[in-house]
């Protein structure tokens, strides 16, 4: 294991995503002399010319990763490359998500371990807990991961989280690793489902339910990813603000006029549209019905209660500015 204090090169998987690019910039500011290599199977929308941050488009295969690890002596790995359900097209099948998310992730971790990486930061999601009427407020990291019980679509997400955490504890004496489960990340640089949902002029919202939500600003998330490198010991951490906001209030703050519809009408429409190829993940409707609020008490012990620069209001209002 290399000394964690002498970080020289970092690999970021999922570099085409906005969060990965923001994280790379944060890391570059914190450690000006390090070399950052970002990889993705997608093309970068904008060409990046930042010093010390290079981008490579590669196919996610074992051979490509092995070449990469052998050619560069990485100290740290940021695995931010979860395949989003929101941007999948019809040709992207469940098996592809399993191949990359589940099988691929473990192979990447094994390679990292065998080739001397000292720390891995893996980005999971709060969706693994599942939205349910009987969720208590503030689920901690030990809460059961129930998402895939209700929606088979989320099997890969839950199983990948399981794989990562199992691998982490199995190898805890050999390599440091952090698994982060953030709440909804929103911001102008990322185009996940929740950001799209909030920034539309009118989004359907449930008339018959009004659950509480948590949102984290993309810049805050990037900073937490950066700080997790040195400040978080091996373990699983929820990432969320202490406060919550009701979904209708959140839409209103974003200037989204909304379509009030009973969810009993919206759900069948979504199921029908999904059959026609709509990318909107239908499990999100469950998250619009019932709460899935996570506790940040563990991460706050290490990063402090004031580790977020944006409060909920500022986070959501930043999306309004982006629309203008």
């Amino acid at each position: 294991m290399k000394a964690e204090n002498n970080i020289q090169s970092i690999l970021i998987i999922g570099m085409a995503g906005g969060l990965a690019q923001l994280t790379a910039q944060v890391l570059k500011k914190t450690f000006p002399n390090i070399k950052i290599i970002g990889i993705d199977s997608r093309s970068l929308k904008k060409s990046k010319k930042d010093d010390g941050i290079s981008y490579q488009k590669i196919r996610y295969t074992r051979n490509e990763f092995e070449k990469l690890f052998r050619n560069h002596s990485f100290d740290t790995l940021f695995h931010l490359g979860r395949l989003s359900h929101a941007t999948l097209n019809i040709s992207t099948h469940f098996s592809e998500r399993i191949d990359f998310g589940l099988v691929g992730t473990k192979q990447i971790f094994d390679l990292a371990l065998s080739l001397g990486v000292s720390k891995i930061v893996f980005l999971s999601t709060f969706h693994v807990y599942g939205a349910s009427a009987d969720n208590p407020a503030f689920l901690d990291e030990e809460a059961p991961l129930k998402a895939s019980i209700q929606f088979a679509d989320l099997r890969d997400v839950v199983e990948t989280d399981f794989t990562a955490t199992n691998w982490m504890w199995k190898n805890q004496n050999k390599i440091k690793m952090v698994v982060l489960r953030p709440c909804n990340i929103v911001g102008t640089h990322i185009s996940n489902t929740m950001t799209q949902y909030l920034t539309h002029k009118r989004s359907p919202y449930p008339l018959d339910y009004n659950p509480a939500f948590q949102f984290i600003h993309e810049e805050d998330m990037a900073h937490i990813l950066g700080r997790s490198l040195k400040e978080l010991p091996t373990g699983v951490y929820n990432v969320a603000p202490s406060n919550t906001i009701l979904i209708r209030d959140a839409l209103s703050l974003c200037g989204n006029e909304g379509w009030p519809l009973p969810l009993s009408i919206i759900s069948p429409i979504a199921q029908f549209l999904k059959k026609l190829g709509s990318p909107f993940p239908e499990y999100l409707f469950e998250y619009l019905k019932y709460p899935c609020i996570i506790s940040n008490s563990l991460i706050s012990q290490y990063l402090g209660d004031d580790c977020l620069g944006f409060d909920l209001k500022k986070t959501l209002q930043s999306l309004v500015k982006s629309k203008k």
Partner: peptide
């Protein structure tokens, strides 16, 4: 009770008036 939040419209009204799901963790919090 656990079924109350699942009732459309009613669940929101009940929680709006300060009721919470009867769960040990909720009570503790």
């Amino acid at each position: 009770e656990r079924f109350v939040p699942t009732i459309p419209f009613v669940g929101e009204l009940i929680t709006g008036t300060g009721h919470v799901l009867g769960d040990r963790k909720n009570c503790l919090y």
